Simulated assay, not measured.
Amino acid sequence: MNNLFSDIPADLSNEVFQTLLSHEQLKIERIVSKGHTSPPQGWYDQDEHEWVLVLQGAGELTFEDGRVERLSAGDHLNIPAHCKHKVSWTDPEQETIWLAIFYR
C-alpha cells in the first residue's frame, strides 16, 4: 500500500514529479512543489487532457488567454489538450501536493 502524503523528500530544491500509474491512455502523477513555478521559457502545451487536484497547499495556474486560477486543497480543474498554461505560483511556506491525471 502507498500513501500520497508519504515519502516527501526533505530537500525540495527541485520540484518532484512521480508517476504513480501509467497506461496507454492514462497517466497519474504526484507533483510536489514548494515555491516552484513553470520554467520561464514557455507554456505547457500537452497532447493529452489533464485533470489536476490540489491535495495540500496552494498553487496558481495561468493560461495563455490571461485567465488565472488559484487552487487550494480540494480544488480541481480540467485542462483540455493543447490549452497552453503554466504554474505561476506555489506556496513557498509549505509543500503543495498535486495529483495530475493525464488522459486521452
Score class of each variant (00 low, 15 high):
Pro80Leu: 04
Phe63Arg: 03
Ile79Thr: 02
Val68Tyr: 06
Pro80Asn: 01
Gln56Pro: 12
His82Gly: 00
Glu48Lys: 07
Pro80Arg: 01
Leu71Phe: 08
Gln46Cys: 04
Val52Asn: 11
Glu50Pro: 14
Gly59Trp: 15
Leu55Pro: 09
Cys83Leu: 13
Leu53Glu: 10
His76Glu: 12
Leu53Asn: 07
Gln56Ile: 10
Leu61Gln: 02
Pro80Ala: 04
Val68Ser: 00
Gln46Leu: 15
Ser88Ile: 07
Leu55Asn: 15
Gln56Phe: 08
Asn78Gly: 03
Lys86Leu: 13
Gly66Phe: 11
Leu61Tyr: 11
Glu69Asp: 04
Val87Met: 14
Trp51Pro: 09
Asp47Phe: 07
Phe63Trp: 02
Ser72Pro: 08
Gly57Ser: 07
Gln46Ser: 06
Thr62Asp: 05
Glu60Pro: 05
Lys84Asp: 04
Asn78Tyr: 02
Glu50Thr: 05
Leu61Met: 06
Glu50His: 05
Ser88Cys: 04
Ala73Arg: 08
Ser72Leu: 09
Leu61Glu: 02
Trp51Cys: 03
Leu77Ser: 01
Gly57Pro: 13
Trp89Glu: 08
His49Ala: 02
Asp65Pro: 08
Pro80Thr: 01
Ser72Thr: 09
Glu60Thr: 03
Cys83Ala: 11
Asp65Trp: 04
Gly57Asp: 03
Trp89Ala: 06
Gly59Met: 15
Val52Phe: 10
Asp47Lys: 12
Leu53Gln: 14
Ser72Gly: 14
Glu50Arg: 07
Asp75Ser: 12
Ala58Trp: 14
Gly57His: 07
Glu50Asp: 05
Glu69Arg: 11
Ile79Arg: 01
Ser88Gln: 06
Lys86Ala: 06
Ile79Gln: 03
Leu77Gln: 06
Ala81Leu: 00
His49Asn: 11
His82Tyr: 03
Trp89Lys: 08
His82Asp: 00
Asp47Tyr: 02
Gly66Gln: 03
Leu71Trp: 12
Ala81Thr: 00
Asp47Ala: 05
Cys83Thr: 08
Trp51Glu: 04
Glu48Gly: 00
Gly74Glu: 09
His49Pro: 10
Gln46Arg: 04
Ser88Tyr: 05
Asp65Glu: 02
Val87Glu: 11
Ala58Thr: 05
Trp51Ala: 04
Asn78Phe: 08
Phe63Ala: 00
Glu48Pro: 02
His85Phe: 07
Pro80Phe: 00
Val54Ile: 15
Glu48Arg: 03
His76Ala: 11
